[in-house]
């Protein structure tokens, strides 16, 4: 009822157009809002990390405590758990950098004025995924040799007639579905969350300002309430997606390094 009343007046819901926001220029070489946010995120993360690292103390300050907590989480709960105590060290810089970059850019979705998740534009998650893609293949081929890397894709102890099928299945998994799902999962989650927030915000605004009667105008409160609830939910999603991305990165690396499969 509420929706129909609002829509009947000519409310145009936000579309994917919302995600195309060029700031300078237009077309393929435009400088866009997510590009600015990506630059901003690096400009925030790098000095903070350098600052905290330079002032390390035995009794940590609040900032050091928070940074160390995040670092330990990625180092131990993701890197060490996944890759194993012997070999996880070289990969911690990659995992920690990815986690911070994704987390900060995801949180941009709900920070007033910024309010745009960088990774809702597919190019950004694709760039991160290409790095992951290169790392787990190169690491695996260096460990097992190129031939050995492909050979060990088929787990031992399976019936002979099924081996070619499994080989193709693993090939598709390693080279197509793993990178595609990694990039799409991050992009789609941020995209969908933002679209929801925009719908609730714009819909509420429209009902409040243009509503045909008092009932519709009061009902806009519901829309605004959902906007607030979803904003908190999106904080959770932002953390979760950053976590899942580094978790799977570590898992793929561990999979490529593992001796026996």
């Amino acid at each position: 009822m509420r929706l129909r009343l609002a829509a009947g007046e000519g409310f145009s819901p936000p579309t994917t157009e919302f995600f195309w926001q060029p700031l300078v220029g237009d077309g393929a070489f435009a400088f866009t809002r997510p590009m600015l946010l990506m630059v901003l995120s690096v400009a925030v993360i790098a000095p903070v990390m350098v600052f905290v690292a330079k002032r390390m103390q035995v009794v940590p300050s609040k900032g050091q405590f928070l940074t160390e907590g995040t670092y330990n989480f990625v180092r131990n709960s993701v890197g060490k758990d996944m890759i194993g105590a012997k070999e996880f060290r070289p990969f911690i810089p990659l995992l920690f950098t990815q986690f911070l970059l994704i987390l900060v850019n995801n949180l941009f979705e709900i920070i007033p004025l910024l309010q745009f998740p960088t990774f809702s534009r597919i190019g950004f998650p694709v760039a991160l995924t290409l790095v992951v893609f290169a790392v787990y293949h190169v690491v695996g081929m260096r460990r097992h040799g190129v031939g050995g890397y492909f050979k060990r894709m088929v787990p031992p102890g399976v019936p002979g007639w099924i081996v070619p099928l499994i080989f193709f299945l693993e090939l598709i998994t390693y080279f197509v579905t793993r990178p595609v799902t990694l990039a799409l999962r991050l992009m789609a989650n941020m995209f969908a969350g933002t679209l929801l927030l925009v719908v609730f915000a714009l819909g509420g605004e429209y009902m409040l300002l243009e509503g045909s009667n008092l009932f519709v105008r009061v009902a806009s409160l519901g829309s605004f309430a959902l906007f607030v609830i979803m904003t908190f939910f999106e904080i959770l999603v932002g953390f979760l997606q950053a976590y899942v991305f580094v978790l799977l990165t570590a898992f793929y690396i561990a999979d490529s390094l593992a001796e026996e499969h």
């Binding site: 598709i172 579905t177 793993r178 978790l247």
Partner: peptide, 23 residues
């Protein structure tokens, strides 16, 4: 002892199911 590994196995299973579907 496995820690966060079961989470990753679960997410990774999705990749395998999609591969099976494609193949």
């Amino acid at each position: 002892q496995q820690g966060t590994r079961p989470h990753a196995v679960g997410w990774n299973a999705l990749s395998y199911m999609l591969s099976g579907l494609l193949l």
